[in-house]
């Protein structure tokens, strides 16, 4: 390694910045715009982890990621207000997911209400618009609906169960490049 190269490296990591301790940081550094490379790195890494998990654990991968997501959902929602009404719970959930996922309650034209009863099942359609999982999968050329999607599924189910105290299930109806349709089945 040449001395010139070492000096160049030192130069890159040196600044005249005066850094003081701060108790409550009000902005992140670097600025989000400068984090593009980091974001791509994280997406790439997540994609590779999921691909390897699938290769090793096969279909068992879904069970692992679903369980991990569900635990996370329960854990995070523990600190949220408990409520029995599903509408309120979904409201809490959208606050919980803000920034990473965004969703809306949706219904087909022929349905009168958002809470649908069909074939002995009570469910609500949710359209997920923004989704970091979808972005990660597309970044890596992976199919939607696999193990990484299961983490989100588990997360939503865990959070809904924690908030409402009722058992829930989430099913994929359709995955698309811009939005995904899911069915939240209430038990």
């Amino acid at each position: 390694m040449s001395a010139g190269y070492i000096d160049e490296l030192h130069e890159a990591f040196h600044s005249d910045l005066v850094y003081r301790p701060e108790e409550i940081p009000l902005e992140c550094s670097p600025r989000p715009k400068e984090m593009e490379q980091t974001l791509h790195g994280v997406m790439k890494l997540n994609g590779l982890v999921i691909r390897s998990l699938e290769e090793i654990a096969g279909r068992g991968a879904n069970a692992v990621t679903y369980r991990a997501g569900k635990k996370f959902g329960h854990e995070v929602a523990k600190y949220f207000q408990k409520r029995e009404d599903v509408e309120g719970a979904l409201h809490e959930l959208s606050d919980l997911l803000r920034g990473q996922y965004s969703f809306e309650v949706w219904k087909p034209e022929d349905k009168e209400t958002f809470i649908i009863e069909e074939n002995g099942e009570t469910f609500i359609y949710l359209v997920f618009h923004d989704c970091i999982v979808r972005q990660t999968l597309r970044r890596n050329g992976l199919d939607q609906g696999g193990p990484l999607c299961q983490t989100l599924f588990g997360y939503v189910v865990g959070a809904i169960e924690e908030i409402t105290g009722r058992k829930a299930k989430l099913e994929i109806v359709h995955t698309g490049p811009n939005a995904c349709l899911k069915k939240l089945v209430l038990k």
């Binding site: 618009h129 597309r138 698309g176 490049p177 811009n178 939005a179």
Partner: peptide
């Protein structure tokens, strides 16, 4: 519901949706 699967599959790029919410595409 704005999934845009139809846009992705159409070989002629013949489709247009107006008033749609475009999801974030950081990827």
């Amino acid at each position: 519901m704005g999934c845009l699967s139809c846009h992705e599959i159409c070989p002629a790029q013949a489709l247009e949706h107006r008033g749609i919410y475009a999801a974030k595409r950081h990827y």
